[in-house]
Write a protein that binds this DNA or RNA. Structure first.
Lengths: 133, 133
DNA sequence: TATCGCGTTAGAATTAGTCTATACTTCGCA
DNA sequence: TGCGAAGTATAGACTAATTCTAACGCGATA
């Protein structure tokens, strides 16, 4: 994903492109992946860029509020951010912690009950936990 | 759920029934519900029973390892424990944090891809996030 | 009674994430 | 060019859930 693509995606989501936000986006959006705040900070440090912890957290919160990335709560001890935002599902290897995307297009769910009164659906996510056989 | 039922369920899952474990089980298993460690500690205190924080955590870990309860990772800031262990799904109200069970029996999922090589399925969970409309 | 093993405990340690108060940047405008 | 406001970034203090540690209790068994 080129720098120009990054800039476009930030603008599309009403995120003004500061240099720190661009750096975080470059790390997270460069390819489909799931990273925690900590991993992003480490990666930024490796790349020699200096973005503070607070800014990384602020930025991730902003990105997910604006739909640029999705929060992923599989590992109970940390929050992961998913660079793939269109609806999709996950394999989660409980032994390794590895998280893999499942595209949504062919998946159909039938027989769900209706939603509780006065509520509407925000998302439907399937999580398939797997382990080595 | 009677005290005898509690004892049976502990035994069925190879958990030796100490008095602290029985007390935690009485709180958590008394009816279908989702509780955090903290909520369990509060409840125990209300009931006048004195079980240490460390023991509650140890006990919940043991229970879930032995399949007596299920961990529920919806709220990224704390772990919930689900007294319903047979396969089922959840509505999660993102505004209130309320978690509601969806029985599995009528739900069918089609079109899932095959599992990654060398892995087997441990569970399939659907999480439907809802908000007030 | 001595000891062994398991469970429990208080409190310290850890750690992801949040908050606070300060400083920097940008930009409109006189 | 200078100034102020708004928006951002930052270090470091703080919070809260969970884990760890090291000591203690206690029943069973030799």
């Amino acid at each position: 994903m080129s720098r120009q693509d990054i800039l476009n995606r930030l603008r599309e989501h009403d995120v003004s492109p500061t240099s720190q936000r661009i750096e975080v986006a470059e790390v997270l959006l460069s390819r489909p992946q799931h990273l925690s705040a900590d991993q992003i900070i480490d990666r930024l440090n490796e790349l020699g860029s200096r973005v503070s912890k607070a800014t990384v957290y602020n930025t991730l919160k902003l990105f997910s509020k604006n739909g640029l990335v999705k929060e992923c709560n599989v590992d109970p001890s940390r929050r992961y951010y998913d660079s793939t935002t269109h609806a999709h599902h996950h394999f989660y290897n409980v032994e390794t912690g590895e998280l893999t995307d499942i595209p949504e297009d062919r998946v159909t769910i039938m027989g769900l009950p209706r939603l509780p009164n006065g509520t509407e659906r925000e998302s439907v996510e399937i999580l398939i936990k797997i382990k080595s056989s």
